[in-house]
């Protein structure tokens, strides 16, 4: 369940946490745990590791809330911690799972002429099958593309916020988002056309 915090409530909680208020931090965890866990889970593709990393995100946040300057929102800050920890984990375990690398995508250029508003495979599949296909396609993306896609389309972060999390220019965020969606669109269309199994 997603709980939302308005800006004033968020600021009040942050102030309380800076005074080492353990209870206030619990409310922050309540508000963000499912979002952070969902993001980390799709980044790492391993449930056990994701649970561990999500805990690390909150522990690190609690320990360094005094350094949180409020220039970005708490949500952006938490996602930045989560993103950095995920990247560290992946690099440490040398799991460079760039299944759908940027170079590989270039070989099928014709599939990316996507100004097609008729794309609606959801109408052809029942909802659970469709979501499973989409989820699988998301997991096939490279880390770079997956991060941007999840933060923008799933977590509803703006281009600027994502640029802040990933530390790249806004233009790069947009191009990655386009390529990620294009891959997703292609994967789902292929599934629908071939009637393939998941």
């Amino acid at each position: 369940m997603r709980r939302q915090l308005d800006a004033a409530a968020e600021q009040a909680l942050v102030d309380q946490c800076r005074r080492q208020d353990y209870e206030a931090f619990g409310k922050i965890v309540d508000a963000f745990q499912s979002r952070i866990f969902g993001f980390v889970k799709r980044m790492l593709r391993n449930d056990e590791e994701s649970a561990d990393v999500t805990q690390e995100v909150f522990i690190k946040a609690f320990q360094s809330l005094s350094k949180f300057d409020g220039r970005s929102s708490l949500r952006t800050w938490l996602f930045r911690i989560a993103y950095n920890l995920c990247i560290d984990r992946v690099r440490r375990s040398e799991r460079a799972l760039d299944v759908a690398s940027l170079d590989a995508m270039g070989t099928e250029l014709e599939a990316f002429d996507l100004a097609d508003s008729r794309w609606n495979p959801g109408a052809l599949l029942d909802e659970s099958d469709f979501l499973e296909v989409v989820d699988k396609a998301v997991l096939e993306l490279s880390e770079k593309l997956r991060t941007v896609l999840l933060l923008h389309d799933k977590e509803d972060l703006g281009y600027e916020e994502i640029a802040n999390v990933v530390n790249v220019p806004v233009g790069t965020v947009k191009s990655r988002l386009f390529l990620a969606r294009a891959h997703l669109q292609k994967a789902v269309t292929k599934y629908v056309q071939t009637g393939g199994s998941i």
Binding site: Q33, S34, G38, A51, D116, Q185
Partner: peptide, 22 residues
């Protein structure tokens, strides 16, 4: 920007992915 706007259905699909509750 126009191409991104045209991908609105993909965005909808991703946003409807299941939540993961710890």
């Amino acid at each position: 920007d126009q191409a991104l706007e045209a991908q609105v259905e993909v965005r909808r699909a991703v946003s409807s992915l299941r939540e993961s509750e710890p």
